[in-house]
Amino acid sequence: MTSSTVNTAFQQFMLHAVRLDPDAVRTARSSRDWLIDQIEALPGKDLAFPLLYSEAHIQFGSFARRTKCRELDDIDLMIALMGGGGRYETTIGTTCKVYVPDDHRLAAFRDAFGAVNSRLVINQFIRSLSSVSHYRSAQMKRNGSAAVLDLTSYSWVYDIVPAFLTTKEWNGRTYYLIPDGDGHWKKTDPRVDKSRATAINQNHGGYVLDVVRLVKLWLKRKRGLTLSSYLTEALVLDHYNNSYQSAGRYMDLELRDVLSGMAACITSDVSDPKNIDGNINHLTWNERWAARTTLQEASDACAAACSLESSSQADAISAWKKILGDDFGEY
């Protein structure tokens, strides 16, 4: 695809390479709703499957927050379990143990100490999900936090996370309890992440989500630098949340500035936006400094590409192509 200006090249790149394909999004949302209906029917078909708290199901992750870049590879669903009559207690940090009465449907998933074992619950999800039509395979996610369902009709998988919605705690907050990977449960609240992304994006004219997507795509293609999607998103949102300057529609300038901002922050701890997990920057000290160098070098390359725009659009487009990949376009 050819373009006569950098601005046009970026518009085409965002449309065809960065943002999710609109048809794929529509199909994904429809298939997600269909799958939720299938899961809703499981307690009546399989008496071993836990009872569900339908009103508390929630979509989470980058697809729900509209911060995922191409290609769509997974969709996250949090399926709420009926916890009536049960209780939970916090042990260490955000780790919790859940207890239910003997006559509770979840009693079959208790461990030797009487607590509901989240791994056993996920395994039951995997067994019961095998009855869903168009089923290809299901397995436990490597970190033990979700049942990963692969359906034949789609190119993406579903990460299905069993969860409890708590009652209000002393601070007035409710939380979701999800598997922690070790058989227990941990607190989270994806509602905060979603509302934060939406609010910051709206405060900056609706341009921030595109920047998040662009940075994520650049990271996918940048060898030698691995940042988690969640940390990346937090850093970009922090950059705009703490900036006095509004985001604009020119993605070349935004990418230049946000990469420099990320470089300045990556060597420090990064606070969990949900105010639950504390620091979410788990890079080692050496990894942080290496990431800082890579991010600043990338920002400098973006600045050099921007400076070419006033003298030669062709040279500028060529420079951006080196930064963003072969599908950026030609002059």
Score class of each variant (00 low, 15 high):
308 L>G: 00
82 M>N: 15
2 T>M: 09
280 I>M: 11
70 R>W: 14
159 D>A: 06
26 R>Y: 00
82 M>E: 13
279 N>D: 11
11 Q>H: 02
269 D>N: 12
152 T>R: 04
325 G>F: 07
247 A>S: 10
282 H>L: 01
104 H>C: 00
199 A>Q: 14
114 G>C: 02
120 L>I: 08
191 R>Y: 00
299 S>Y: 11
267 T>P: 09
117 N>C: 14
163 A>P: 02
201 N>T: 14
49 F>K: 02
232 T>W: 10
306 C>K: 02
244 Y>D: 11
289 W>F: 14
9 A>H: 07
190 P>R: 14
310 S>R: 03
169 E>Y: 02
112 A>D: 12
100 V>M: 06
144 G>A: 01
235 L>W: 10
15 L>H: 07
291 A>H: 04
133 S>K: 14
301 A>H: 08
321 K>C: 04
93 G>E: 06
311 S>Y: 13
38 Q>L: 10
311 S>C: 05
94 T>H: 06
74 D>K: 06
154 Y>M: 00
214 L>E: 10
69 C>Y: 15
116 V>D: 04
19 R>G: 01
216 K>T: 10
29 R>N: 11
49 F>V: 01
329 G>D: 10
213 R>H: 07
193 D>M: 08
163 A>C: 05
226 T>E: 03
76 D>W: 03
157 V>H: 10
17 A>Y: 06
52 L>E: 11
240 Y>K: 00
50 P>K: 05
215 V>F: 15
302 C>V: 07
144 G>W: 05
283 L>S: 11
12 Q>I: 08
87 R>Q: 13
236 V>E: 08
29 R>D: 04
30 S>A: 09
139 Q>N: 06
138 A>D: 10
322 K>I: 02
25 V>E: 08
123 N>T: 14
307 S>H: 10
138 A>M: 07
7 N>L: 10
160 I>W: 03
110 R>F: 05
17 A>G: 02
317 I>D: 10
233 E>N: 13
206 G>V: 11
313 Q>S: 09
92 I>C: 04
322 K>C: 05
305 A>D: 02
132 V>M: 10
99 Y>K: 05
75 I>M: 03
328 F>E: 08
106 L>R: 04
280 I>H: 02
33 D>F: 04
12 Q>Y: 03
73 D>Q: 12
181 G>C: 09
33 D>E: 13
185 W>F: 14
316 A>V: 06
331 Y>L: 09
46 D>A: 12
10 F>N: 08
186 K>W: 02
184 H>V: 08
178 I>F: 02
284 T>V: 13
39 I>M: 03
23 D>T: 15
231 L>V: 10
328 F>S: 09
245 Q>R: 14
74 D>L: 01
176 Y>I: 13
81 L>M: 13
119 R>G: 04
58 I>L: 07
211 V>G: 05
133 S>Q: 15
161 V>P: 04
160 I>M: 02
54 S>A: 12
270 V>G: 03
190 P>S: 14
48 A>D: 14
202 Q>A: 15
152 T>E: 12
281 N>M: 12
155 S>H: 07
328 F>H: 10
292 R>H: 12
194 K>D: 13
190 P>Q: 12
69 C>N: 15
65 R>K: 08
14 M>I: 14
220 K>M: 03
231 L>M: 13
236 V>W: 15
28 A>R: 12
286 N>G: 05
298 A>P: 07
286 N>F: 15
281 N>R: 14
3 S>H: 08
306 C>I: 04
214 L>N: 08
287 E>I: 12
275 N>D: 15
298 A>K: 11
